[in-house]
Amino acid sequence: MRRRTGLVFVAPALALFAVFVLYPMVTAFSYAFFQWQGTTRGEFAGAQNFVTLFTRAPFTTDLPQALLHNVLFFLGTMLIQNTFGLTIAYLLYSRPRSRRMLQTLYAMPYLVSPIVIGYLWTLLLSPTFGPVNTLLTKVGLESWALPWLGDPKTAIWVVILVSVWQWIGFPVLLYGAALGGVPEELTEAARVDGATNRQAFFKITLPLLVPAIGTVSVLTFIFAMEAFALPYAFGGSTGNPAGATDFVSLLFYRTAFDSGATDAIGSSSALATLLFLIIFGGAYAATAVLRRHERRITA
């Protein structure tokens, strides 16, 4: 294909992408380094907006709390998907007949809007008419029939568990695909040599799955750090009750659109930049470690 013709083919996509993705992304960073009075951009501010994030209320209390929730969210998801999720994927792999059907069922909640999932569970967990607490009472577990979302101590765990419930079909699917890439000859050979299923899994299959687990972990990290719609459905933009379900994206949204502070653009852009650096840095570091591991197992 001639160069000029090719560029004509690329042009429409490039125009859309440049205007609506590249330009906003680049300006998002630049916003963070200027002083702002309402929508008027002032002088270059250096790191001043970032300093604000660590010195001024409400950031000094809200940011550490929200960030902690993002981290808990990530760790909780990782813990469950790499134990329970991996087990499920492994068990499924030896059941080719029911595999497709079950994978589909597990992935169903993943496709539903997080907003729908949040409201659905809010209703299911309602202390007055929710079926969950009614069922707990019926089977004699009255002491467990708690106002799950009303109590700051339990609300964050509800958000995390519901999110895992929604998300886990995705790692199960990807682990399933990765298991398909493990050469049968290897596990077969191990079994011929007298290895049990368990030994074959831990000594052969699992090490070969590390790249897949790593890739899924990176995606999980990005997902956890960006969490917005699900916590919004559960606790609104302020992370009710009492900030117990606050997340960095919610804090960012409040700062940018609800705070009314005159320098809202500066401080919220600094927050977005910080979150971007966390996401990008984390993902980049994990990918680098992963590449090194891959070179080792293929060497």
Partner: peptide, 13 residues
Amino acid sequence: GLMLPIHLAILPI
């Protein structure tokens, strides 16, 4: 663009 969390650019958008 696969790596860019576009939601973080909501303000410039």
